[in-house]
Design a protein around this nucleic acid. Structure first.
Lengths: 158, 158
DNA sequence: ATACATGCAAACATTTTGCTTTGGC
DNA sequence: GCCAAAGCAAAATGTTTGCATGTAT
């Protein structure tokens, strides 16, 4: 994503938050920028330790920011079978499905037309649920793992 | 699922496990039966406390059994945005997608033709991953929650 | 008889909360 | 100045491991 687009996106988010009574703080700005920059899902820890965010930004702060952003639909949580939860920034028009290796935990984005979106509306009507979105993941053994290699760390924040 | 089917399924699983050097213990039998009986996803805690399983069956034992079963592809883990992980028994020919309320955590099974299975093979070829399966969840706000009710517990084991 | 499986308890990782201080509006 | 947010530290929750004992084969 280009810098100008990012700036626009972040401005928009900040504006929407402000209109709901939330304040625009330094930590919020940095966190949003960080999440916009690095396009893959990140954990609270990864964010809290990211040098760009801040040298020593408290995980509790990151946690509260993410909860708030999620509550307002600007961030989405992913369940990728890691012990920690992963988060991504919600960007209008962007959607990703994921391919996760159950051996090493590696996470890739799947680049194919997602066949599920059209079902969301159908499901809303049928179930009475509102604000429905979906999460689609594929799990399997990656080439590296079935060639006999071991689990490696999955830290990959930006 | 009918009792006879369950018996057959469990026999099959036990046989496969035995042929891989795992022993058929009382705890394993009870756990498998429990998971076959209750068709929705369950947590380690729920299983460990289930009266049918055992009065005081250690969570550590349940954990180890589930890990082993997952490793051998007989159990599958689900990431349903709860802090605890959910598990289901893999039953050939059975597949479920889920609808989860982000307000109260309630989990429903979605009863519609899943449009994703055919993609698994395509993805295997394209990515080099093996044993690919998928997990599809829909998240939203259930009628009870957007009518102003509060979060309720999600314990619903059998 | 020989492992593998269990139970109990302790260690761990991650999330969540309380409380005081800081800082946006 | 007021109230939300940050920072620090402590509690809660759920997962994972170590070790002595039991049990299936």
């Amino acid at each position: 994503m280009k810098k100008i687009e990012i700036d626009g996106l972040l401005e928009g988010i900040a504006r929407r938050l402000r209109s709901r009574g939330l304040r625009r703080t330094r930590a919020l700005d940095l966190l949003l920028r960080e999440m916009a920059d690095c396009e893959h899902p990140v954990t609270i820890q990864e964010l809290a330790q990211c040098p760009a965010l801040c040298e020593q930004c408290d995980p509790a702060t990151v946690y509260r920011l993410l909860m708030k952003l999620e509550e307002h639909g600007m961030v989405r949580r992913l369940g990728l079978h890691d012990r920690a939860a992963y988060f991504i920034l919600v960007v209008p028009g962007r959607h990703h499905d994921y391919l996760v290796c159950t051996g090493c935990g590696r996470i890739e984005e799947v680049d194919m037309e997602c066949p599920v979106r059209s079902l969301e509306q159908k499901l809303e009507k049928a179930s009475g649920f509102r604000h429905v979105y979906h999460e689609l993941e594929f799990f399997g053994i990656c080439p590296g793992c079935h060639d006999g290699r071991e689990r490696h760390g999955s830290a990959h924040c930006c």
